[in-house]
Design a binder for these strands. Sequence first.
DNA 1: GTATATGATTGGGC
DNA 2: GCCCAATCATATAC
Length: 348
Amino acid sequence: MNYWEKERKNKTDIQVMVSICGIQDEDPPDAQLLRLDNMLLAEGVCRLEKRGRGGAVAGAGTATPGGCPNDNSIEHSDYRAKLSQIRQIYHSELEKYEQACREFTTHVTNLLQEQSRMRPISPKEIERMVGAIHGKFSAIQMQLKQSTCEAVMTLRSRLLDARRKRRNFSKQATEVLNEYFYSHLNNPYPSEEAKEELARKGGITVSQVSNWFGNKRIRYKKNMGKFQEEATIYMGKTAANTTEVGVPGNHASCLSTPSSGSSGPFLLPSAGEAFLTLRTLTSLQPPPGGGCLQSQESLRHHPTAPRPRVAGSGPPPDLQLRHLLETLAASIPVCLIKFWGYAGKSTA
DNA sequence: GTATATGATTGGGC
DNA sequence: GCCCAATCATATAC
């Protein structure tokens, strides 16, 4: 094999290797790589290898989707096990790629050095070739990272998705929420503070409280008959709490006012006050065109409901309350429903 | 296995 | 940003 043949072969070898790998002079997509790195770090697939990258959230691997604080560590064990598998595969593949990159670089460098005995090859040319190889392997690594990210996302959606991991609230949480709902049936829109307090009492998150009230309002409206019994139970329960202490307006079991505004007409912080107000509310003339409140806006800002203060002559407030409780207990839910507006909406 | 209950998500309106 | 309404996906009851 003469010089030219040898030269041609060497060139061909390199070209074949380069073309097989599709090496081109291209800049690695740093931004995408950075995103993938950050995600893998956040998911705990890889560790911080380089300082100054930023963006990776410390402890992000322990966060639970939806922020639910419920105890789901048992359910997460499967997730963790599979994540560990993914991590192993990722590192194994990464190691393979890095080794292949080293071997390939060495091989190409050797070929170039061999060639340099026959023709002048500048260090820059070697450097350029090595850089191209590294760039290509970086691209391969990025594909690996992308695949790993996809695998993790799939795993998360399968095993950690909040919907799939739905758990019924504890009895206490449901009780707390129902008590508030039925004691504020005329305006079941808890303020942010009330939501926080309900969340704390029920051991759930504020957004779960919001979800619960959203669902409850809709389902109550859709099927009021079904909730009559429940309404009576909770209204009675709250009323009993109130009468037990013998002071109407005792708010020990109640939470802060609804979100309709502190100066609004629905300052009914207890079932006792709700009942006192009932007489006035049910005597209100329905708004024109349909009897009851027509829109969400009117639900939140009823224009006419007065403050339920009993003053002047007549029996003392506690007796009034007791009387009202006795005479109205059975009909309270219906009255409140009517006032709330949905009954009118569906029956008018 | 099916029906129902229930918590979460999504999309649109305001 | 909050709410409603529809819907999804899972839990629970039968």
